[in-house]
Design a protein around this nucleic acid. Structure first.
Lengths: 232, 232
DNA sequence: CACGCCTTTATTGTTCAACAATAAAGGAGA
DNA sequence: TCTCCTTTATTGTTGAACAATAAAGGCGTG
């Protein structure tokens, strides 16, 4: 048996590979539009084509990767439409979950932990880690709604959004402002004013969407996104 | 090459199989708790184990099937908790989508078509078809929110719920009353009162949940659900 | 009889090698 | 320059093989 993939968990090798490739995608190690060759990647990871294929189907289901039959699997290129769609859903889900939240809910504890985390990483200027912590904050907000299925769905949205974040040049601009904003949202919730917290959050999300779309436009001008293939 | 699977579409055999098995699940041809043997099912469908495995991963991702590593794939047994979760989400999603709807939206046309469909099938007492039409009605409501991702998510929820419907003895009781109710919701929306339509819908959903949970309890008393295995 | 331990057995997990099917790329001819 | 054909690299799919695992059954021992 070959060297197993280190540092990743999974009850089965297929799951392990899925987790590993997902991390590569979310952390920007793989570039949107890039084609993922079955032969190449399976050899690089030391696994068989069939096993990698199972992982590809999972990731395609999560939207991180796009499957073109007989052509291969490509890292999903976020479109402006997908960013708009994701933010619309975030407002739809997060704001309502927060508005009807009880401040003593376990999710609120998770929100606090995430805010603390983000603060720590901001001091070391580790913006990627700040981004992860911020996303954990929003996932915690969704937890307030007490729906397992909604949690899973939101995590999938968040991963897809991070794909788009990877296209944006300046990660500090993308994450830094929201450390303080998230703290304010949390404070308002803990002060027993969930409705007001929700309105704050909605305002921040609108602002964040605008920021991301603007950066995306600048990116689109630089690279020619139009065609997925021919991106060598 | 073997006889291809008839009557199902899919750009690739794996997709075709996924669609086929999904239909078998949703239409009650496969019973919750039942184990799906790789060897048996792949032979029955005339495909290889590897291809069936890809389909299993997709269906597991949709929640229709549960994967126990080294033990196999089982048709998901809906729990009371999952029913509650799904209905909570339905109210969360559908009511809000409807409340903020514009009556001229294409989704409204789809709602009308679904209501007509349900009426037709009611006359022939085809309750399974009525159930399908009713679900199409609710999917159309979600379309009003104009989010592709939300549509996909809801279709997945609906399929999972139909798994639970399959456990219930009397399908007429389950679907018949809602033909008229859905029509009333539609009429209210078309009369330009989306907020009122949303409140109607919420009331119906609460009622439907109660009905399903009660039937589920009766079912649970008959069969011993507790243990997934040993269900021969 | 009950309890834990070992062996057996059937099934899934994973790999490999082969071939079919397809889409992209390149070349010949008009 | 354009179209059609051929080539080529890649994915789609299969079958067989073996490893790894969990369930079932048997076997002593108390």
């Amino acid at each position: 048996m070959r060297e197993p993939i280190a540092g990743e968990t999974g009850r089965t090798l297929g799951e392990t590979v899925t987790n590993r490739v997902r991390r590569m995608l979310v952390e920007g190690e793989l570039i949107p539009g890039q084609r993922l060759s079955e032969a190449g990647l399976s050899e690089q990871l030391g696994i068989s084509r069939n096993t990698l294929r199972e992982a590809f189907r999972s990731l395609a289901h999560e939207g991180l990767v796009t499957h073109h039959p007989n052509r291969g699997v490509f890292v999903t290129t976020p479109s402006m439409a997908s960013i708009v769609d994701i933010y619309r859903l975030r407002r739809f889900i997060e704001c309502r979950a927060l508005a009807e939240a009880w401040p003593g809910h376990p999710g609120a504890r998770a929100m606090r932990a995430a805010v603390a985390d983000a603060g720590t990483h901001r001091e070391t200027q580790d913006w990627n880690a700040v981004g992860t912590a911020n996303m954990a904050f929003h996932a915690a907000i969704v937890e307030l709604a007490d729906s397992e299925r909604l949690n899973v769905f939101f995590r999938r949205l968040a991963a897809e959004l991070r794909l788009a974040f990877g296209l944006i040049a300046d990660p500090e601009m993308l994450h830094e402002p929201y450390v303080a904003m998230n703290r304010r949202v949390l404070d308002t919730l803990e002060a027993g004013r969930p409705r007001e917290a929700s309105e704050l959050l909605e305002h921040y999300l609108v602002q964040s969407e605008r920021l991301v779309l603007a950066a995306y436009t600048r990116y689109e001008e630089g690279a020619n996104i139009a065609s997925t293939p021919g991106m060598d």
